[in-house]
Amino acid sequence: MAQMNMLHAINEALSIEMEKNQSMIVFGEDVGHFGGVFRATSGLQEKFGKERCFNTPLTEQGIAGFANGYAAAGLTAVAEIQFADYIFPAFDQIVNESAKFRYRSGNQFDVGGLTFRTPYGGGIAGGHYHSQSPEAYFTQTPGLKVVVPRNPEQAKGLLLAAMRDPNPVVFFEPKRLYRASVGEVPEGDYEIELGKAEVVKQGTDITVLAWGAQMEIVENACKKAEKEGISCEIIDLRSLAPWDVDTVAASVKKTGRLLINHEAPLTGGFAGEIAATIQQECFLYLESPISRVCGLDTPYPLIHEKEYMPDEHKTYEAIKASVGF
Rank of each mutant, 00 (worst) to 15 (best):
L286P: 01
Q22S: 08
P152A: 12
D85A: 03
F116I: 15
G35K: 13
L177V: 05
L114K: 07
E305L: 01
K145H: 05
T118R: 04
Y285F: 13
V111W: 03
A77T: 07
E135R: 06
G203A: 01
M6N: 09
K253G: 03
H8K: 15
A72S: 15
D165G: 05
N107Y: 14
L177S: 07
G112R: 07
A40W: 08
T255S: 00
S23A: 01
S42T: 15
A180M: 00
H262K: 02
R292N: 03
G49W: 11
A161K: 09
A162L: 06
S291L: 02
E19W: 10
E191M: 14
E153N: 14
V252W: 06
A84L: 10
Y129E: 14
E80M: 08
Q132F: 11
A275L: 08
E184N: 13
L259A: 05
I81E: 10
N261E: 04
T247D: 06
S288V: 04
V111F: 03
Q202Y: 11
P134W: 04
L14R: 11
A2C: 11
M309K: 10
R104M: 11
V185L: 08
F27S: 00
M1D: 12
F83M: 13
A155G: 01
A136D: 04
S322A: 09
S23W: 00
A213S: 14
S288R: 04
R164N: 15
E273T: 12
G62N: 00
V26C: 06
L237V: 15
G269T: 07
E287R: 12
D244S: 05
Y86M: 04
S133F: 12
T315K: 03
F283N: 07
R164K: 15
I217Y: 10
N96V: 09
E307G: 15
A84M: 07
L14S: 10
G65E: 07
L286C: 01
T267I: 15
A79T: 06
Q132H: 12
M24C: 07
E191Y: 12
K320Y: 02
V169A: 12
G272V: 13
L194N: 14
R292M: 05
D30Q: 01
E226L: 08
L159Y: 06
Y190Q: 09
V169W: 11
A210T: 00
L259E: 01
N151I: 02
I234N: 08
R238L: 02
H313P: 05
G28N: 00
N261R: 08
V26W: 04
M6K: 11
T41R: 14
Q22V: 07
Q140F: 11
A241N: 13
Q82M: 15
G127L: 06
M163W: 06
G269R: 10
N96F: 09
H304D: 11
Y103F: 15
G36I: 00
A136Q: 08
K156P: 00
I94S: 09
I124D: 07
L160D: 05
S231E: 14
V182H: 06
L144C: 02
K314W: 03
R52V: 00
P134I: 04
E305A: 03
D205C: 04
G49L: 11
I206N: 01
G112E: 04
P168K: 10
H130R: 15
S23K: 02
